[in-house]
Structures are given as C-alpha cells and as structure tokens.
C-alpha cells in the first residue's frame, strides 16, 4: 500500500468517524429504529466518486468500527445495523455510479439512503427473527428521501469546493450530474 493511499484512507476514515459520532449525539427525529441523517454516507460516496470501491470499503469498515467504539455501541445491536446499512449503501451507490450511471450525485445519495434502510432492516429482522419489523419500511423509505437529498447536496457542495481548489473529479462527464442547477 502506497504512503499516499494510506494517508488518504486515514483522512477519509477520520472524517467519516467524526460525522458518524456527531450524528450519534443528535436526538432521533422519529421513533423508528435506525432513522438517521446519514452524514457519514457523504464520505462513502466521496470515496466512491474520487477513488474506487476498495477505498470506500476500507472507509466504511473502519468508520463503523471506530464510530461505534466512540459511541459505546461496538459489537452491540446498533453496530451491526449501521455496518450492514453502510455496506448495502456503498454497494448500491457503486452500482449506480459505475454500472448504471443514470442518476446525479443527489439521486445516487438518495438511492444510497434507501439501500441503507433496507440493509439495516434486513439485519434487524435477522437479529430478532421477526419479519414484522418490515412494517417500518415505508416510513424509513419516506425519510430516506429528505435525508438522501440533504447529504447529496452537501456532497455536491464539497465536490464543487474540491474542483475549485484544483482537485480533479473523475467520471463527471459520464454521469453528467454537474450540468444542472442544483
């Protein structure tokens, strides 16, 4: 592993961990397990856009472990929920960035939030062996939309800033998400 890559992953993990931790301090907006803004997902998507799946995977695994360690939920139920959710979201966003590039950054972020909800509910259903928990799905899907849009817009602002300060953003043309007015 090159030094540059090591430093890069460390930086992304640090950012994602802090976002994960800060989010844990916010009160839950609705009484549904696992409904969150998903701020740390910004970094997952950033890693996918700027680098590759491997980098994003490193970031997801390390930040869920470190973030849960800080929150005191490591290897508890909450940890497995956010881990599965983050992994599903990363896989879904990869699919929409590389294989079916039909959505803009905001759309990919919304799809990621939706995948996060579904992955998390699957894990929850597995842990408590109760498929009835899918009752929550429509509420979680509805909530994924604003949270996905908010995180997507934040990422978009971040990408614009990176571009302005001279960074290169690969794959912009193929995705065509920057030509719009958002």
């Amino acid at each position: 592993m090159s030094t540059k890559r090591l430093a890069l992953i460390a930086m992304l993990v640090a950012q994602a961990t802090i976002l994960h931790y800060l989010e844990g301090l916010l009160p839950n907006p609705v009484p549904i397990p696992g409904v969150k803004l998903g701020l740390a997902n910004i970094i997952t998507l950033l890693a996918l856009i700027l680098y590759d799946f491997k980098t994003a995977l490193n970031v997801v695994v390390l930040r869920t472990i470190l973030g849960s360690l800080l929150n005191g939920t490591l290897f508890g139920v909450g940890f497995f929920l956010s881990f599965t959710g983050a992994m599903t979201a990363a896989a879904m966003m990869l699919l929409l960035l590389r294989v079916f590039p039909v959505l803009s950054v905001v759309g990919v972020s919304v799809a990621g939030a939706i995948a996060h909800s579904i992955g998390q509910l699957l894990m929850a259903a597995l842990i408590i062996s109760q498929p009835g928990i899918f009752y929550y799905l429509p509420f979680m899907l509805l909530f994924s939309i604003p949270s996905g849009i908010i995180t997507g817009l934040l990422l978009k602002a971040l990408l614009k800033y990176i571009e302005k300060s001279g960074g290169k953003i690969p794959g912009e043309k193929s995705r065509g998400g920057q030509s719009d007015s958002w």
Binding site: V102, L103, S104, V106, G107, V110, A111, G177, D180
Partner: peptide, 10 residues
C-alpha cells in the same frame, strides 16, 4: 437534480 432523480423519488 436530473429527471431520473425525480423519477426515483416519485
């Protein structure tokens, strides 16, 4: 935001 995004949300 593209048309596809709005379609997905809808």
């Amino acid at each position: 935001m593209k048309k596809n995004d709005i379609l997905l949300i809808a």
